[in-house]
Design a protein around this nucleic acid. Structure first.
Lengths: 347, 347
DNA sequence: AACCTTACGGCAAGCGGTTGCCAAAAGTTG
DNA sequence: CAACTTTTGGCAACCGCTTGCCGTAAGGTT
């Protein structure tokens, strides 16, 4: 009836006070080999129901938690996914982080959050340094070049968000449609002179937005302006607002809400009325867009859901299911949320 | 001159295409034992400068990145810290996450972000499940009871934020001072009937705020009301606003900005003017507090810095420096940021 | 020159799991 | 009931890195 042979440890009730129990302790208590415990936990069908129950009870009694480290070492998987965002300061990314966090947690995977500070070097660096500590990556608004992206995606599973890529699965926001809706809205309010307020030049979505803007506005015969680039923060809004006013445009489509809100503040300070004198359309519908002053008309998209989808796609890539090939592209729908920052063009 | 003996691998230029290089590959290339490589990387002074250089070059050439998993397994440290927040949805926590993220990254430690969904069970669970995968924990606004906290803090290093604890190092916000300042502000504007709009009952800071509010307002001879609890989200603002109006109070101190902003929206919808009819003071000075309508008077505190401090305290606990005992308590200063949601009491 | 320190680097035993391989046990079948 | 198949569980070799212990060569002392 030896209750604990080799080690001097005594796995008695709770066993909370000792050094954390290992798989060996469980095996001992259940009277089986460690390999059996391992199997009972990982592939239950591989072991006899009776022994399995015994093992589970032992594990529960010892309050056993497998070490993800050790598991990772031998299995080669970390059960963690890194999420890289350009700027953790930006509420937009919070939404996506929420989405990934949620879905990742549901899958029992740990989220490693990384702020790349809008720098492609940091991004590359993180990708490199963490290749051993994460099973896959989600690149939000990646600043990488196509070539870099292609290379990286070859050596590790990843999915990009808001950054088209031919080499990796991507979830995108339907920007073209969004811009067209926005322009349509402006047109229907009688605006003829429109301005695009640009964000970071390295941002793919910025390029995309401008491209569609230019095309569509031209098609409509509008007078087009473009100002920027601006860093996408409220603090850049003042400069952007001043520049926008100077173009003579009556309607602006702004790279993102942060910038747009900054502009709103400046315009108010300068006594320029929104929307009476100028209409502003933001993008992303971030937290705050609904209660700023005036509430911001903006391009909405289910960002949080986009995060979830990105995770699903990555997970599908990591655990290739039987049958269907994983989805390579998801496009999130957009719609224009019309609030009070847009109105009829001044006479 | 055997250039690669045992394994068939050929560590030639780049070696990017092979399976990732291990410490063994580096050792082989540099012509030393793996232990030496390990030391050269961890405690450079422990090896001869010449060999160290050789090793570093080898590592660089192979593009070697140590496996944090393996490192953790043998050293018993994970080089990761888990940050537990009650609600990742709440901008307030974003600020603290930013702070921890920043400081953690500076220390080369990975941040594991966990959303405990305002549940003490989930919190306990995470604490338990992750004890092997994190070296320490930062508990933001922990929902744990004192007893739980005491127990947990015994088995693993942690620091609490915005949750007093005698058992663990804590960083707090100087709530008493803040509430007193707020009340003083209200008093100076002629308000006599004040109302505290409560947040989650399990929130320590909520209890604290109420306690100080009650004390100080009583001392000033004000008429005191209390409504709530409300979930700290903008969506609860409507109910809170209606209830607040009903109390007849002319000045409200609200658990947090989220709730306060929600109230602002409702009051506006109901045609109740802020601050002409009612003054509102929020707490936290979150993103958006400055551009809501009207801009919110609120209790500000360097939240992001609090996150950094929390990390420092935790790190100090993990690597006990020679000399001084680590700090057990940090109190972040607060000040009242007066914007436009407070004004003279109605006549 | 003989002796003692020190600094440096190697050996090997783990850390806590996973997994391929194999033998014993249990279940089938004619 | 023997021969055969399928389950079930144990053995042991790793996974990649750290670290205590120890031998050796280099430098310092009288």
């Amino acid at each position: 009836m030896a209750d604990s042979g080799t080690t001097g440890r005594n796995p008695k009730a709770g066993a909370q006070r000792d050094r954390p129990p290992t798989i060996r302790d469980v095996a001992e208590l259940a009277g089986v080999a460690t390999s059996t415990v391992s199997r009972a936990l990982a592939r239950p069908e591989r072991v006899n129901p009776r022994t399995r129950v015994r093992i589970e009870e032992a594990a529960a009694q010892l309050n056993y938690v497998p070490s993800s480290q050790a598991r990772g070492l031998s299995s080669g998987r970390t059960n963690a996914v890194a999420v890289l965002v350009p700027d953790i300061t930006n509420p937009f990314y919070f939404d996506i982080i929420r989405g990934t966090q949620h879905q990742l947690k549901a899958a029992g995977v740990t989220q490693l959050l990384v702020d790349t500070e809008e720098s492609s070097d940091m991004e590359l660096d993180a990708l490199h340094k963490m290749r051993k500590s994460a099973d896959g990556f989600i690149l939000a608004a990646s600043r990488l070049t196509d070539a870099q992206l292609a290379e990286v995606s070859q050596s590790q599973p990843l999915v990009t968000f808001n950054r088209a890529s031919t080499s990796a699965p991507t979830v995108m926001i339907d920007t073209p449609s969004a811009i067209i809706q926005a322009l349509e809205h402006l047109a229907s309010l009688g605006h003829h002179k429109v301005c695009y307020v640009a964000g970071p030049p390295t941002s793919w979505s910025n390029q995309m937005r401008w491209k569609v803007f230019e095309e569509d506005a031209t098609k409509r015969g509008m007078e087009i302006h473009r100002i920027g680039p601006y860093t996408p923060k409220t603090t850049s809004g003042a400069a952007a607002a001043d520049a926008a006013v100077r173009t003579g445009a009556t309607g602006c489509i702004v790279f993102n809400d942060l910038l747009a809100i900054g502009m709103l503040q400046r315009l108010k300070a300068r006594g320029i009325r929104v929307p009476a004198d100028m209409s502003i359309i933001g993008s992303d519908d971030i937290f705050g867009a609904d209660f700023c002053n005036p509430p911001l008309t903006t391009i909405s998209s289910p960002i949080e859901q986009a995060g979830r989808v990105a995770v699903s796609m990555l997970l599908a890539q990591l655990n290739p299911l039987s049958g269907s090939a994983p989805r390579q592209l998801a496009v999130m729908p957009t719609h224009l949320t019309i609030r009070e920052s847009t109105g009829p063009a001044p006479a």
